[in-house]
Amino acid sequence: MRKLVIYLFLFVSTVTLAQNANELFLSANSLYKEGKYEEAIKLYEQIEDENLISSEVYYNLANSYYKLNKIAPTIYNYEKALQLDPLNEDAKNNLIIARRLTLDRIEALPKSVLQKFNKNYLQKFTYNTWAIITIVLSFIASILFLLFYFAYTPNKKRTYFTTSIISFLLLTTSLIITYTQYNQAKKNIEAIIFIEEVPVNNEPTDNSNDIFTLHEGTKVNVLDSVDNWKKIKLADGKIGWVKTEILKEL
């Protein structure tokens, strides 16, 4: 009985939070339409603080920052929107426009055929989506195998056997993709520079040499951390160290 009460309390709390978040979202949207961007940002970020996030929340938050000409948080929130929904075309298009405001022009290293295929097709879905596809395929493969096992006529057995083999092959492929995408997501830590201009050092010390300069809104990959320093890598292959507080990880 006690567990039932706890579950009911958690359910009611979740529903209440969701309703509050929806009301905040609608209020923030109204403020945005009225041109009250700073007030809208406060409400969107309140939703984020309550951990009731969505691609739409980050997208609208980015739009609000864009209206205030704040480059770093604009790009950061478009990137967050795409993390949650890689198929969000509006966020993707607006991110391209926002990146034109950055000062750094970094040419990415050429990608191999497999890397291009991974980026253009496999990464269209998150590893969570691939995991769902894997589960669905496992059910389909199991059902087809059972139909093959209990089928009586040779034609049906042949059909179910062929389709179950194809399903198992697709299942194995999707499982490999899910595992690969998960590992890439965990290893590939990206961040946005949040300082107007920052020198990048060759070592994680205050008295080390500056090797190049970055500006706000530039996206980097975080490779390592030492004390209050982060080792970063750019799309063109350049590597250096910056203070932790100057960037915000995605």
Score class of each variant (00 low, 15 high):
1 M>D: 03
5 V>Y: 01
5 V>D: 01
14 T>G: 01
22 N>H: 09
22 N>S: 13
23 E>D: 10
24 L>F: 03
25 F>Q: 06
27 S>G: 03
31 L>R: 02
34 E>Y: 04
36 K>Q: 12
53 I>K: 14
55 S>M: 03
55 S>Y: 04
58 Y>H: 15
64 S>A: 15
65 Y>V: 12
65 Y>S: 13
73 P>K: 12
74 T>L: 07
76 Y>Q: 14
89 E>W: 00
91 A>I: 01
92 K>N: 02
102 T>S: 15
103 L>K: 15
109 L>C: 08
117 F>P: 01
118 N>I: 11
129 T>Y: 01
130 W>F: 08
141 A>T: 02
143 I>N: 01
145 F>Y: 15
145 F>N: 05
154 P>H: 12
156 K>C: 06
157 K>N: 08
157 K>R: 15
161 F>G: 14
164 S>C: 10
166 I>G: 00
168 F>N: 13
169 L>S: 12
180 T>A: 14
181 Q>C: 01
185 A>W: 06
188 N>V: 13
189 I>F: 12
192 I>V: 15
192 I>P: 07
193 I>H: 04
193 I>E: 02
195 I>P: 00
197 E>D: 03
198 V>K: 05
204 P>K: 08
208 S>H: 07
210 D>A: 13
214 L>H: 11
217 G>L: 12
218 T>H: 09
226 V>R: 10
230 K>Y: 15
232 I>D: 01
232 I>Q: 00
233 K>W: 02
235 A>V: 10
247 L>K: 03
250 L>C: 10
